[in-house]
Amino acid sequence: MSIDQTATHEIYTRRKGRNVAVLLILLAFVALVFAVTIVKMSNGASMEAFDHAIRPSILPEVSE
């Protein structure tokens, strides 16, 4: 069975289009996570989570 060169080129163009889209989505995702992190840290949000050990910094504040 012969391989048609035009068809091969066409499929590469499609794949390239998809790969570029995936790249752009990943870059946008990284930028979004970075931006959200900056905003959350600027607003003083607690960025620490449970880690099997008691840490005073993540205990809820008790009003006097």
Partner: peptide
């Protein structure tokens, strides 16, 4: 034709972003 068959085989599952 063989060519037409080739194109169909190759294109299966190759959807575009849209």
């Amino acid at each position: 034709t063989d060519t037409a068959m080739d194109i169909e085989t190759v294109q299966t599952g190759e959807a575009q972003v849209k």
